[in-house]
Design a protein around this nucleic acid. Sequence first.
DNA 1: AAAGAACTTGCATATTTATGCATAATCATG
DNA 2: CATGATTATGCATAAATATGCAAGTTCTTT
Lengths: 153, 153
Amino acid sequence: MNKQNRQFSIKQIITHQVISNQDDLCQALGKAGFAVTQATLSRDMKELGIARVNTAAGHRYILHVESEERRLTSMIGYEIESIDANENMIVIKTLPGRAQGVAEIIDSVRHPAVLGTLAGDNTIFVTPSSVTKIPEIHKLLKNLMTQKKLDVG
Amino acid sequence: MNKQNRQFSIKQIITHQVISNQDDLCQALGKAGFAVTQATLSRDMKELGIARVNTAAGHRYILHVESEERRLTSMIGYEIESIDANENMIVIKTLPGRAQGVAEIIDSVRHPAVLGTLAGDNTIFVTPSSVTKIPEIHKLLKNLMTQKKLDVG
DNA sequence: AAAGAACTTGCATATTTATGCATAATCATG
DNA sequence: CATGATTATGCATAAATATGCAAGTTCTTT
């Protein structure tokens, strides 16, 4: 009957049952022995980082994992799918819609070998100050990808 | 402006601006030249698989990657107007607003010679894994243009 | 080009979620 | 154990989101 158990139960329920709104969840929790109101569930959702998405199959809740640990951890590794290069530039593939944000982080490093970045929806072109710098930048970016923290202004 | 451009703009806006609700988004879109109502944005959110999450820093929107639909159209040939190349990359011109969709199809082929694509409104830059691959890609794209179906995983 | 189908959007409003405030429960400290 | 601080919760309602319907638009087919 405490908050922790209830919140754990919430995660279980939303991942294993069809829950379309907080009243649904309220009922499901009731069966599990947790009697709370919708207001409390709204607050639980916030604390658990649970997001609501509207799909063709109806409204669903998803765990937004990043939101729990994002505070000091950079998302950049999670967002980048690949880093490649040819003779002229480096190309980064990201999750859909993430290229802008990742490019901003790269810009913020202000590495002298990076002339500039150009971001679309899920692709970034990184232009080196000289083609001879490409391996160096490539290495920098690979490092960023696996780094846990970034001290970026 | 049309729906496709607006939805692309929505993804851009929610990933690099602070947007807390659909009215915020409505205003941001207004500045970008898209005049629509909250009702339309609610529908766009659904189609784009955008979820809303409540964090300590306020309400935010996130892209729910799995729900992004990537369907292959056999219309790619119709959408492409021209394919050209210089020493470094290939440039594709499409019908207005079609570049994003065409680029996604090219990406989905995952041809090893294609390092990445970057799409604007009606122009796509295709970067080769090496400049020596340009003729090969050029040929591939020309083939795609006339092909009826794509057998792509 | 006309007719019908399919898609898009706004309006009004129903549904759903978030929150200010008050109260109860839990915790920390002497 | 008493007391003040912190945390948790419900109630009522404000804020935000979703949707039925109708009108306008675009696409298809003949």
